[in-house]
Nucleic acid binder design. Structure first.
Lengths: 216, 216
DNA sequence: GGATTTGGCTACTCGCGCGTAACCTTACGC
DNA sequence: GCGTAAGGTTACGCGCGAGTAGCCAAATCC
C-alpha cells in the first residue's frame, strides 16, 4: 500500500451538521454498551463510518464527546417530558402525561436512556451533573405532590415529600430499565402500570394513611 | 537509593486472611468511587497499605478482584436480608423486616452498596451477574405479593405482578441511594417510609383498584 | 480558473496502568 | 539451628488507546 490508489470517490462528503449527529449516534451507542472508559474512540469513529481525527475535529476530546452525548440525550428527554406535562393541568393528568412521554422516550431511545442512567450515574466526572438533573426531577415531582395535597387542604413535611418523590422516581426508572430490556413491551402500557402504582400508592399515602412498625 | 537501607521492620506481617479482607475493603472503596476501569490496582494496593504484587498473589487479576468484591458484598447483603425475613412470617412482617435489614446494610456498607448498584450494573462483564441477582430479588418480592394476594382469594397476571415487583424494588433502591448520600439519615426511619409507600401502595393496587387513562 | 475553505485520511507519539520477574526476610516446623 | 514456606518488596515489560502531525481532495467563492 505504498502508492495511493486514486480510488473512485466511493463515499460522499457530508456537511458537518450531519456528520456530528452520526458521530453522536455512534458515541451514544458505544458509550451505552461499554461505559465511558471501556469505550474506545476508534470504535466510535468506526461505528460512525468516519476516521478518528474527524471526531476530534468536530466534537473534541473523549470527555467532551461524552458530555455532548449527555447533553443531547438529556435535553431530548427533558423536552419530551416538559412538552407533555403542561403545568396548568390537574396533577394526575400531568403525572400521566409526563410518565407517558418519559416511557415513550425510553422506548424510542434505549441507548440514550442506558447511557444516562446506567453509565453516567456511576462515572466520576459526570455523576454530579446527572445527580443534579435527577434532583431537579425529584423536586418537580415533589412540587406536584405538594400542590395536589394543598388543593385538598392537607400538608406534609418537606423531607416526607422528598422521600416519596424519590421512591416514585426510582420506581419509574426501574420500570424504564425493564422496558429497555424488553423490546417487545409497550411503552404506553408500561406507563399505565406505573401510573397505577404511583397514583394509587401516593394517593393513599399522602391521604394520611400510614403503616406502623410492629412492636417487634 | 542504591543500597538497601536495612530499615527496622516498622510494619508487622499479617496473616493472609487479614490482608485479604483489608485488600477487599480497599478495593470496594476505590471501585465504588472510581468505577472498574478508572480504578487502578496501584491505588487499591496503596489504600490497602500493601504493595501491588501482594494483591495479585492473593486475589488475582483486576477482574477477579472485582468479582471477589461483588461476591463478598452481594453475599453480605443477601445474608442480611434473608436472615431477617423468615419465610414463615406474614407478608407485611416479612416485607418490613427485609426492608429494615436492607436499609441497615446500605447504611453500614455505603461503599459496598455503591459498588453493587452504581458501578457493577453498567460495567459490561459484570452487568449480567448483577442483573441476575436483581432478577432473583424481584422474583422473591413478586412471590411475596402473590402469596399475600392468594391468601385473600385474589389473583393477578404474572406480568402484572412482575411489574409491581420491579417498581417496588426500584423505589427501594432509589431510597437506598438517597440514604447513601445522606449520612445523617436514619436507616430505620427510611425503612419505615419505604414500607409505608410499598405496603399501602401495593395493597391498594393489588386490592383491585385501578387508575384508568383519560379519553385522549 | 485559481485561491481558499471544508471534509477527510494514514500513520504516528507517548503515557498510563496491568501484570510479572526476581529477590528479600521473618516466622515456624521439627 | 536450620530448611522451607509464607509474607513482602522494587523495578520493570509491554500493549492499548487517547490524542496529533501532516497531507490530500473536493466544493465553493469571486
Amino acid at each position: 500500500m505504498l502508492a495511493r490508489v486514486s480510488s473512485a470517490p466511493t463515499f460522499k462528503r457530508l456537511p458537518r451538521a450531519v456528520r456530528e449527529q452520526q458521530m453522536l449516534d455512534a458515541a451514544v451507542k458505544v458509550f451505552s454498551r461499554r461505559g465511558f472508559h471501556a469505550a474506545s474512540m476508534d470504535e466510535i469513529a468506526e461505528d460512525a463510518g468516519i476516521s478518528k481525527p474527524m471526531v476530534y475535529a468536530y466534537l473534541g476530546t473523549k470527555e467532551e464527546l461524552f458530555i455532548a452525548c449527555l447533553h443531547r440525550e438529556g435535553t431530548r428527554m427533558t423536552q419530551a417530558i416538559a412538552g407533555a406535562a403542561a403545568p396548568d393541568l390537574p396533577a394526575d393528568e400531568r403525572l400521566w402525561r409526563g410518565l407517558r412521554a418519559f416511557f415513550g422516550f425510553v422506548g424510542a431511545h434505549r441507548d440514550g436512556w442506558a447511557m444516562l442512567y446506567r453509565q453516567a450515574r456511576g462515572t466520576q466526572p459526570f455523576a454530579g451533573e446527572l445527580a443534579a438533573m435527577r434532583a431537579r426531577l425529584v423536586e418537580v415531582v415533589a412540587g406536584m405532590l405538594d400542590h395536589a395535597l394543598r388543593a385538598e387542604g392537607r400538608e406534609v413535611g418537606e423531607t416526607e415529600l422528598e422521600v416519596v418523590a424519590y421512591a416514585l422516581v426510582g420506581a419509574t426508572e426501574s420500570l424504564a430499565d425493564w422496558l429497555a430490556d424488553h423490546p417487545e413491551a409497550d411503552p404506553e402500557k408500561t406507563a399505565t402500570r406505573m401510573m397505577n402504582a404511583a397514583w394509587l400508592g401516593a394517593g393513599q399515602l399522602l391521604g394520611g394513611a400510614t403503616w406502623r412498625p410492629p412492636a417487634n
